[in-house]
Each structure stands twice: as structure tokens, then as C-alpha cells.
Amino acid sequence: MNQKTYFNWSSGKDSALALYYLLRQGNISIDRLLTTVNGHYARVSMHGLRRSVLEAQTEAIGIPLDVIEVPENPSMEQYDALMKKKVLELKAAGYTHTIFGDIFLEDLKKYREAMFRPLGIQPIFPLWKKDTKELLQEFIELGFRAIIVCINNSKLEKSFLGKELSLELMERFPEDVDPCGENGEFHTFCFDGPIFQYPVAFEVGEQIFKAYNNPSDSSKSIQFGFSDILLAK
């Protein structure tokens, strides 16, 4: 019997590969992609991708998009409350499982499991504990295509923004950068591959750089760079 499942969709390579695994597996019914969007900016909260581009991407995949809209600067309490509200709506609609593309961040996995356990939804982690270099190689060999849309400036130079992922590009990463950016070194936008009905047509726009307070040390800031992605006209 198929498990009614929704996918926590980031729009990047890890989500795309995890979705590919599960669609190929065939015993899980995935009929909804869920993404957290900043309602003030109309952008994906995680890495600033425009909502219009996200919508074009999910249309190209062919699975309906659902969103959780958060305010401009949500607190963790606000985020948790909005997530819980949405999850309870999905449970009422018959969903029993949810998918995440996490690979090896133990604290994040425990946080997700602790959040979903009392809500009666079972999280699934298809990429968990897989070698990140091998995952990126598989991603590229399968014909997936993605570009870097966000970097942590302390880990990668701005020249990496807007670059398409490749084995050659991976070899240029500094030694302390995970091949899949699992520690937040970079985020990606996937625009083509075996889960797509057709590639997403887009253009790379201007680069934007911003600084945020470090949650673990308020005296320091974290600087990020974004490449603005626009739909091709």
C-alpha cells in the first residue's frame, strides 16, 4: 500500500536527488512539494530564490507546490507554530509521511524527528549518511543540472555564484567545503534532470550580498551572497 507522502522541497540538488530515489522506488506516493517562503520578499526562505522561479520549477517537475508563508523576520517560535499548523492540515488530508533531503546533520535530524513525532507524521531521509562526494557525482552522472544561487562568503568566493555544478567545479572547492554544501557553505537551484518534464528556462541576474547576526555569537555576523534568478522571457 502506498504511503501518502509530501516532500519538504528546497529547490536544490539534494531535494532533487532524494525525490528521484523515491519516485524510482515506486512504493511511495508523493503528490505535494512543500516549501517555506518569505511572504514579505516572495522568495524561498533558505536561499532567496524567487517564488515565481520556484513555481516554474515545480510545474516542470509536475508535482503540485504548497507553501508555508513566514513573515519578514520570523522567530523560531513563529516558524515552529506555522509549520505545526501546516503539518496538522496535511495530516487531516491523509498524509502519513514526509521527506527531507538531509545527509548528515544529526542535530537537524533530531529536531525534525522531535517536531513530527507528536504530530503523527513519519519523516523519511533517503540520503541519510551517504557520502556527499559520491552523491554529487551521482547527481551529475544522472543528468541533473543545478547552479549555485547562495554562498556563505566565509567559505566560498563570490566567483562561485551562478556557476553550474560539475565535477570540475567540485575540485575547486576549498578543503573545508563539503561537496554538497551540507554545512551551509552553498545552496543550489536545480533546473533539469530525470525528474523534470522539461528544463526550466532562466537567467542569472545581479549578485546581492547581505550580513546577518550569528545566532551563536551576536557580536559576529554571517555574510551571504545570492545570485538573483529570473525566468527567461
Rank of each mutant, 00 (worst) to 15 (best):
G225I: 13
G39L: 05
C190W: 09
F209A: 04
F160K: 10
P174E: 02
K155N: 05
H187A: 02
N152K: 15
N214D: 14
Q137E: 08
E203G: 10
G39C: 05
W128F: 06
T188N: 09
G12E: 04
P179Q: 03
F173G: 00
S45I: 10
L135P: 02
G162I: 08
S75E: 07
A92Q: 06
N214W: 11
A232K: 15
G205R: 09
C180D: 00
S221Y: 11
N183Y: 10
P118K: 12
K210E: 15
H187M: 01
H97D: 04
D66K: 09
V204P: 07
K91P: 02
N8G: 03
I195R: 00
F196D: 01
T36F: 15
L108E: 03
T58M: 03
A114T: 13
A92S: 07
D131F: 06
C150D: 05
I140R: 04
K233M: 06
E69I: 12
K233D: 11
Q197K: 15
A42D: 13
Y198A: 08
E168K: 08
I229K: 12
E206Y: 13
N27Q: 14
I148S: 08
T188D: 04
I63N: 03
K129C: 01
E106Y: 14
L34Q: 01
L22H: 06
L65I: 10
Q207N: 14
L88R: 10
A42C: 08
L49K: 11
N152P: 11
Q122T: 13
